[in-house]
Each structure stands twice: as C-alpha cells, then as structure tokens.
Design a binder for these strands. Structure first.
Lengths: 128, 128
DNA sequence: TTTGTTATTGCAACTAAGTTGCAATAAATT
DNA sequence: AATTTATTGCAACTTAGTTGCAATAACAAA
C-alpha cells in the first residue's frame, strides 16, 4: 500500500535522495542515518517507498541493494517496467541511473517481464 | 591463479554442473554438497573455478550468487567479457544462460568493461 | 486541543550468505 | 615412500536483511 504517514524518518530518508541525485546503497544509507533511526526502519521505509513508486531498487555488482528516485514522469506504481540501465564504477563504487533506453530482447518460449542491466566500468573521475 | 589440484571436492562440484547444464545458485550447491564437503570449500572452489575461466558468476534477482559453466570456446580466463544475458523465472526461480548476444550501449564519459543483463519473467513451464 | 485509532518505530533476537585464520589432510612431484 | 604445499574442515566471525512485539507518534475526528 506504500507510504501513508510523513514521519520524521521518511522525510530524512527522502532528503538523502534529493541531496544526492544518484543511487544510494543500503549500506551508505545505514551509515548516514543510523544515528537518526533504526536499521529496520531504514529497510522498511525503503520497501514502502518502492511499493509506492517513489524509489526503485536494483542489485549492484557485489550483491548490495541500491535505491534511486524514480523520475516523476515514469512515476506509475506497480506497472513500472523499470527498464533503464544502471552504471557502477569498478573503482570507486559510485552508481547511477542511465537515462538511455535499451531494447528488450525476445526469448523464445519465455515471457519477459522485467530487465535489469548493470554496466560496470570506470566513471569519468576514475578513468583520470 | 585458479585450480591446481583435482581433488575429490572439485570433481564433485564440477559433476553438478555437468549433470545440470543450467546455472546453479550457491544455495542449491550448498544443499546438494553439504554432506560431501564444508561450505567454505564450496565457496573456495567456486572462486577458483571462476578465476580459472571454467565458471562464471552473476547475481540473481534476489541477490543470490549463481554460477554456470563457461562454454568451451569462450574459455579465455581474465579477458572474458561475459556479455551474455541470463534469465530467471519469477515463479520457480530457475535460472539459465541465454545464448543471444546483446549490444553493449555506449555511455559518454564512461568506459564500460562488463555488462550484466538479467531478464526476469516466466519460463515455458510456468507460463503453462 | 484533546482524544482515539492505527501506522510506524525501536529493540533485540534471529536468519542466511559469505569470509577468515589456522591446524590437519591429501594431491602431486621427486 | 618421502616431501612439498595446495586444499580442506572447523569454528568463529561479519554483514545484509528480517521479524515479533510492545511503545510511540501521525493524523483524523470530535
């Protein structure tokens, strides 16, 4: 059912995303917020914000879960076929959403419902 | 440096892959092999077989790590740009390597070194 | 502005994946 | 058969994420 109440914790968590504009890992979020709220709270809010269509999540290269804001136009709960790819830097770990769209391959005998594409490489800063 | 010795455990683990021909999750492997070897051994052998170019790994939809045999021709250690996509059934969880090749998108200011693409949907059996 | 309802939170205990140090074991080479 | 050293078992650990429950705090209604 998603977010119902705008609690202090919900606001603090959303503020992190608005200030950063990139994807944030649960690890990063827990480090930043552990003084302000309990870790179960962080996980539970992330889950609700995702149900609500405010955030989307994906798995990074080392199995950590990352979250990022959905852009307003694609803001349709439940039916969101979050097809956009993500990039993660192999050196600094920075992770971002890419605004390019990728063609979803057809596979015989399979119905494809979602696609997750992670590009790993080096970001502008780490290429140097 | 990869596998050096063909131990009983290495053989048992490779046999699992040869009998199955699909990808196997670490969870599945541990369940099947825990009577024959210790879990650290499973993890360590998987790591060595991957270094050696015999297996490749990828993250499934729920963050579990999956392994699959490399096909012999693409069997080049270290430089293997494992570009092929994987499919995981949302219902039964079965996971497989797809032999289709996907175009690697260019991203300005980023050097892309590897791509992981996971398609989630329903396999032939679960579509029914 | 107080009161009542119930969503949300904190807490502590738990699960599960994966890692590590070290002593014991077993491939492979002589 | 003896030697070397990669590999294994074990136990203890780390870390991500979950859960049940009692306490708390949004928020709507009075």
């Amino acid at each position: 059912m998603g977010i119902v109440r705008k609690t202090r914790s919900v606001k603090a968590l959303l503020k992190e995303f608005e200030q950063n504009k990139t994807a944030l890992s649960t690890r990063e979020l827990l480090e930043r917020l552990h003084l302000q709220m309990n870790k179960s709270t962080v996980y539970r809010i992330l889950e609700r914000l995702e149900d609500d269509g405010m955030l989307h999540s994906f798995q990074g290269k080392d199995g950590l879960t990352w979250y990022a804001l959905n852009n307003k136009n694609s803001y349709s709960p439940s039916n969101h076929l979050s097809t956009h790819p993500h990039f993660q830097c192999r050196d600094c770990g920075k992770t971002e959403c890419l605004s390019i769209s990728i063609p979803v391959p057809e596979v015989a005998e399979h119905s494809i419902e979602s696609v997750s594409l992670l590009l790993v490489g080096r970001c502008a800063e780490c290429v140097g």
